[in-house]
Design a protein around this nucleic acid. Structure first.
Lengths: 214, 214
DNA sequence: TATTAAGTGGGGTTG
DNA sequence: CAACCCCGCTTAATA
């Protein structure tokens, strides 16, 4: 990892366009070619480019230096006025990956194996079951009636709309039965609960200690 | 900006949970207290915390060192096995901000001032007009009939669902007239166009040289 | 390759 | 503070 301190400005053009006035900033270039440009505020960079980009240096007529990072459909130019420091930091090459836990995927898995939290009346119909509106997180059956369950860590009103899309799509496959929707989440936002009630979507609070429950 | 190289592992707990095995990484701590933990791959950090967090160092029984960053409802622990380098890089304090251009907001503004791209039949009803389902980007009127326009740079099927939500919400305010929806975008994805046709939502391709047009 | 949905999403704006 | 939505979102899974 190379860390350069420089007085610089920048222009990005690609998915959008940005310009950045002159200041002393840190430029970080990693082994894989990815680059980020930082000021002393926030963990996020001002400008950046992913590992696919190609670096080149050009010298302008006025002898100023421009670093160009070219991507497929975007490019970042950093106009270097003055470089103050330029250091190389060796880091481990081998990637020791980040392990995530408690994701929505884990919640889905756990719910699928612990149906009792839904109540006694349901049987399991599958996880990530395809519908005309994309895969529904969990499909339950209340007797013959399908229930589309949308699982979230934090459920905002959007979760209700999602559930309703699955309900509509399932109604085309399951006729003569009653298709309903449900939102299951650790954090049920009030506006979501209100909308769900209005739209006839059930709501399930997943207990915070779900991991501990069996 | 302080850059530390260390052999370390990490645990994050908060919105989600992550664990990170031991390796030599770079720890970047900025003036505002924000922190990020990097390996030599990708412009994005492995772990991070925003500027609100409080740093403290603790020494374990086995004399190992842990750096703790406490946020409101989250915390990050970095288990330091060995520190190799620790440097301080002075950057400009004054924030020279990033200027964005060509955002959706710019598109909205331009469309509002260049209604002719929609055709001759429309009159302007407002920008970011509140509805029961959030603000609609642009509201047009075709005679007395409201048209909810969802503006995007890139329009995926989600844009159609968004437009339909605004249409539903507007139907409660505008009775006895025909409320319809439209998606206006620079990049119309095929799946979006197909869904829009199916749901009776209009589609408008914004010309790529919109800036040049008057 | 394109599409879809999740993310420790971040960040800003509005009520 | 919650809700809402854009972002150069990024990233991972999936068809």
């Amino acid at each position: 990892m190379r860390v350069i301190t420089a007085l610089c400005s920048a222009i990005y053009a690609g998915r959008g366009n940005t310009t950045l006035g002159e200041a002393v900033r840190a430029i970080i270039i990693k082994d894989d070619g990815s680059i980020s440009l930082h000021n002393d505020v926030s963990n996020k960079p001002l400008n950046y480019m992913g590992s696919g980009c190609i670096f080149s240096e050009s010298v302008q007529e006025d002898s100023s230096v421009v670093w160009v990072f070219d991507g497929r459909k975007e490019n970042l130019q950093i106009f270097i006025t003055e470089i103050f420091t330029d250091i190389d930091i060796p880091l481990d090459k081998g990637i020791v990956g980040l392990e995530r836990d408690g994701t929505e995927n884990h919640l889905q898995e756990w719910l699928s194996e612990n149906l009792h939290v839904f109540g006694d009346q349901y049987t399991f119909g599958g996880r990530e079951v395809p519908t005309g509106a994309g895969p529904v997180d969990i499909l339950l059956f209340n007797g013959e009636n399908p229930v589309a369950v949308e699982v979230k860590r934090v459920a905002t009103p959007n979760a209700v709309y999602q559930a309703l899309r699955y309900v509509d799509a399932l109604k085309e496959s399951y006729e003569d039965v009653n298709v309903t929707g449900m939102v299951a989440a650790l954090d049920l936002r009030p506006a979501m609960v209100a909308l769900a009630a209005k739209r006839g979507v059930q709501v399930l609070q997943i207990p915070n200690d779900w991991r501990g429950l069996v």
